[in-house]
Amino acid sequence: MNKPLEKIAADLNAEFGATYTEDRGEVSFVVPAERIVDFAAALKKKHKFEMLASQTAVDYWPALAPRYHIVYQFTSVSKKLRLEARVPLDGNDPEMPSLVDVFPNANWFERELFDMFGIRFSGHPDLRRILMPFDWEGHPLRKDYPLGYEEVQFSFNYEDIEVRKPRPKD
């Protein structure tokens, strides 16, 4: 960890009690869900991390506590620094505060997470499905959602699968 990042890390640790680890040159904080908005605001205002580069989630099903990790990547363009923040979430359909007020581009990231993982973000202005059709059932990137592949036809099961295939009317 380089010097400026060390200082920021110590500062954030003191202010938010966020523990951090360093692995493969990346600094990763664990932040509780209720503090994440303050955490991001402090990063943006105080420590000049102007950009929310990425926001994603990981599903650790069948574990339920925590089931999800929300992973944020913050970038400081002026200081050329990066850091990661992870928010653990319990339960199948968790809810956490939205980051839209601090970083407006969290809007679509959070819509995608709602679409793909079913995580709700309170305070989000427009929480609709974004990638899947609006009437889709289920959240595809969850680990308990099947990949939904089609069986490969071989000579021994060709007929069985052929019958089940959907066909156009004309």
Partner: peptide
Amino acid sequence: KASVYMPVESPRGELGVYLE
């Protein structure tokens, strides 16, 4: 069992992959 985030500059901007 670990995770990395790797960003590169694609012709359109920051292309990053989060791999766990």
